[in-house]
Write a protein that binds this DNA or RNA. Structure first.
Lengths: 229, 229
DNA sequence: CGACCATTTGATATGGATCAAGCGATGTGG
DNA sequence: CCACATCGCTTGATCCATATCAAATGGTCG
């Protein structure tokens, strides 16, 4: 699968690209140690990066593009665990296997880091150990926020999602969504129709504008925050 | 009820009690270092152990009883983050403050450990550092499972909850619930009425028996597992 | 015994799912 | 370059699972 294919094709991506410069603030702490150790690997749109229950030999850092992690239930329902933007680290496990699957949402470049290397390093370097812990704690924080989202109304979920994406984007008022309505729906625990209708509703109430389906302008952040909980 | 009764009989709780011996398997790793350092502290039913946003000076280990962590939204909706049984560690934060509130569900004894002590220890002892990380990773795992619960139907949530509690209990087929229907509802993102009706439904379908409202007998685990996802 | 609180049960309302079309953008083959 | 298929998104009509509102029941404690 992707593993082998992608592994082979990473000849020229040695020096840090400037496009990547706007990395994530909180989780990028592992940066210093990590940048050195992995090869940037390209994944095309919808390519699998790893599968649920596969051995977690590597962890990953998004260089460009966007990644989703997800689980699928017996009957096909899919739950997206998280979206990862440039600078974000994902796939770090403490157990032997990955607990989610991961896919590139758009063509993406991902730094691949061998876990054993990092673990070995952590045994000697307290700072690395602390950064591994911090990364896991960051994931925990996100998961807990996600739980709080899932008990809310559709409007609150969508508003919360937009605010979250805006906070993580470069521009605070304009969000460029790399993911489809289906991805959003599966993240929020709603249907695609409800997500669409809710966006229309928010647009009609002048809280947002939707110039194109993948671009959302936050017109009234206060209103969104108010309906966020 | 069981609450007071269990509490009153702890005159000699210096040496490990055999009743407590059946502690959690995964998260109890911090045990060895921790047991030495904290004082067991009693909390009575519904007593607050810490509040959301309070400085996280301590972390905690349940000795006896049960603890719930929760958040309350603006409009009063309460979400329970987790239930902690004897052996479980809770309240471990990496940030400065607690992100949930914690309360004893029944009269409980809780070991209180100063975080700074443990952090200092972790700086020298790799094993302690790893245990802190593992504890956080365990919480992450739980939170992710919780997310998967929250996208399911009422019946699936309740079945999943019962199976989870059974797995954590001493007896695999009989669950003694320390928490109220309201607590269960707020954990599962349902109303108390829906929880009650669903239990009745499961009882009618012979999947469970409910001899008393706080005691559930799993009569047909396979059926429960089947409806779990 | 009587009051209180937790739980169950019943009747009705409703938010979001489901089923079904329509629409606009993108791409493909003739 | 256009006709047409495809895909992602929106919109409409209806249904249903769960919430809400309301009352009855049962267990516990003073």
């Amino acid at each position: 699968m992707l593993t082998t294919q992608t592994m082979t094709s990473h000849t020229a991506s040695r020096q840090p690209e400037s496009r990547v410069a706007r990395s994530a603030p909180s989780v990028s702490t592992l940066g210093s140690s990590i940048e050195l150790m992995g090869a940037p690997m390209p994944f095309s749109r919808n390519a699998e990066i790893y599968g649920e229950n596969e051995p977690a030999e590597y962890l990953y850092k998004v260089i460009s593009g966007t990644v989703r992690t997800y689980k699928v239930l017996n009957d096909g329902r899919r739950q997206i665990g998280a979206f990862y933007l440039p600078g974000d680290i994902f796939g770090l496990e403490i157990g032997a296997d990955h607990t989610f699957s991961a896919e590139a949402i758009v063509d993406s470049k991902v730094l691949v880091i061998k876990r054993s290397t990092l673990i070995a390093l952590a045994a000697r370097d307290t700072e690395v150990a602390r950064q591994l812990w911090t990364t896991t704690a960051g994931e925990l924080q996100r998961a807990q926020d996600h739980i709080m989202l899932l008990i809310k109304t559709a409007q609150e979920r969508v508003a919360g999602f937009l605010l979250e994406m805006a906070k993580r984007s470069a521009s605070a008022t304009e969000v460029d969504l790399p993911m489809s309505r289906q991805d959003i729906a599966d993240y929020l625990g709603l249907t695609i129709e409800t997500v669409s209708r809710t966006l229309t509703q928010l647009e009609n109430s002048a809280a947002i504008a939707v110039p194109t389906s993948r671009r959302i302008v936050l017109r009234n952040r206060a209103a969104l925050s108010r309906m966020n909980a």
